[in-house]
Design a protein around this nucleic acid. Structure first.
Lengths: 105, 105
DNA sequence: TGCATTGTTGGCGTTTATGCCAACTAACCA
DNA sequence: TGGTTAGTTGGCATAAACGCCAACAATGCA
C-alpha cells in the first residue's frame, strides 16, 4: 500500500492531466516543443486561460518552458505520461459502449 | 492530435484517479477484491464519503462491485492504471527535489 | 524613446468537487 | 415481526477549479 502523502504527490500529476485542454496540450507536445502561440491557436479560449493551464502542467513537472526573445517555448518533459492511455483504452471503450447503451434504450 | 471529445473521455478516467483517497483505493485493490468495510477502515472518513469515492471509480469504469448478502465487494477492473506511476516516478522525484530546495532556501 | 506584440498575473463570478449529517433501502438475526 | 448491520442516496456548506477581463512586464521595432 501507499501512504496518504505519497498519494498526494501522485495526485498532483494526475490532477494536472485532468482537464481536456491540458490533455490535448500534452498530446500536442508529443510532436516536439512548441511555442505558446501554437498551443494557444488550438483552442478558442482566452490567452490567460491557456497560460494558466500551461502553468499547471509546469508546476506538476510535466512540461517545461524557456523564452527565446519574445516567444515562450513549451516542451513535454515526461512523454511517457501520454502512454498512459494505451492502458486506459479498454476502459474508454467500455465507457463509450455503456454510453451507447443508455442512448439506445 | 486528439480531439476535444476524445480528451473528455480520457479526462473522465484521469479525474476519477485525481484524489488521494481514490488513488489509495486503487492501490489497495491491486491486491485483489476487497469488501467495502476493508476499504472503509483504511480512512478516517464518513462511510458516505467513501461510498461516493467508490461510485466515482465505478462510473469511470476503473472498479466494479457486486453484492454478496450484506457485503459489497469491490474489484479493480483495470490494474494497469496503477502502473501509470512507474512512469510518473521520475516526475514525482523531481517535484520532491524542487520542494526540498524551496524549503532549504 | 514611443509603441506594438507576446505572455503572465491579479481579481472576480460561476461551476464543480469534497465531506459531513441524516434519512433511506436491503439483508440478516432474534 | 422488530431490530441490527451494511451501504447508498439526498442535501447542504465549504473549498477548489475554470474562464474571462483588465492590468502588467518584457522584448522588439520604427
Amino acid at each position: 500500500m501507499i501512504t496518504f502523502s505519497e498519494a498526494e504527490l501522485r495526485v498532483k500529476i494526475i490532477k494536472a492531466m485532468a482537464h481536456p485542454v491540458r490533455l490535448m496540450v500534452i498530446e500536442f507536445l508529443r510532436g516536439g516543443e512548441r511555442p505558446f502561440s501554437a498551443i494557444f491557436s488550438l483552442f478558442q479560449l482566452d490567452k490567460s486561460t491557456i497560460s494558466k493551464h500551461l502553468l499547471v502542467l509546469k508546476e506538476a513537472g510535466i512540461v517545461s518552458s524557456r523564452k527565446t526573445g519574445t516567444e515562450t517555448i513549451y516542451k513535454l518533459e515526461v512523454p511517457c505520461v501520454a502512454d498512459f492511455f494505451n492502458c486506459a483504452t479498454v476502459v474508454i471503450e467500455n465507457n463509450v459502449k455503456k454510453q451507447m447503451k443508455c442512448l439506445c434504450r
